[in-house]
Design a protein around this nucleic acid. Structure first.
Lengths: 113, 113
DNA sequence: TTATAGTACCTTGCAATACATGGTACTATA
DNA sequence: TATAGTACCATGTATTGCAAGGTACTATAA
């Protein structure tokens, strides 16, 4: 369905912004992050999240540590780095500019209706 | 520069939304569209716009007609179709959901600071 | 008439990311 | 020992923004 495809395209670039946001609040492991995003109605699956976390870690925007779990296998807790925080600020600016641009275009269109 | 790359990624999916918005207001040719988007600080170049207009036309979301110009070559005026208007509404909903999701995540993060 | 500038449109291949799919591994419990 | 629940992972596909190089029409200058 074409709108689903458009939604996926709109998520490109925004997901890393959201993940860095979630982690700037507190450290988390993958399942935590998925649940936090789900609360915001940003539905992300593991197949998307793990490669993205790896990419962010490789870019030194995130770090991680292993922690034992009282049940099940050990968990990989991710944390944002200083570099990640700086990048998050830049993403914040970019996102706001984009939202403003879209609002300008949409409001301009509706004003002339 | 990595932030420029992130910006390009954030524009994926959003550009077609903006272009359909611009054209739902009034018909336009490429240069018009580029200028309208520039007013909103959405910088788009021809190499991006022409393939996208072609894709939208092939998806029957847009139609076009040629019009002579008093100076220079003839111009291709694009217009949105009924199907395009319906899709624009769906894109509008999707965009708003995304913006709400991001706001939820960002506000949650700042509330706990 | 020819050459040039301005304007309009176009094609193609590359880079980057979301994600589906299939997989491995650890731990607790039966 | 086998199984269920949970956690993590790799890879290839699909899609779009866009840089780069191109063609073509029209008016104007030479």
């Amino acid at each position: 369905m074409k709108i689903e495809n458009a939604k996926a395209q709109m998520r490109k670039g925004v997901l890393e912004y959201c993940i860095l946001s979630v982690l700037s609040d507190h450290d988390a492991y993958a399942s935590d992050i998925i649940n936090k995003l789900k609360e915001a109605k940003m539905i992300v699956v593991e197949g998307t999240l793990y490669p993205l976390l790896t990419r962010l870690k490789n870019s030194e925007l995130l770090g991680y540590r292993w922690e034992e779990s009282s049940q099940g296998p050990p968990r990989k807790y991710y944390e944002i780095t200083e570099k990640g925080k700086e990048f998050l600020n830049e993403l914040d600016d970019s996102w706001k500019e984009l939202v403003d641009a879209v609002a300008f275009i949409r409001n301009y269109e509706q004003r002339t209706d």
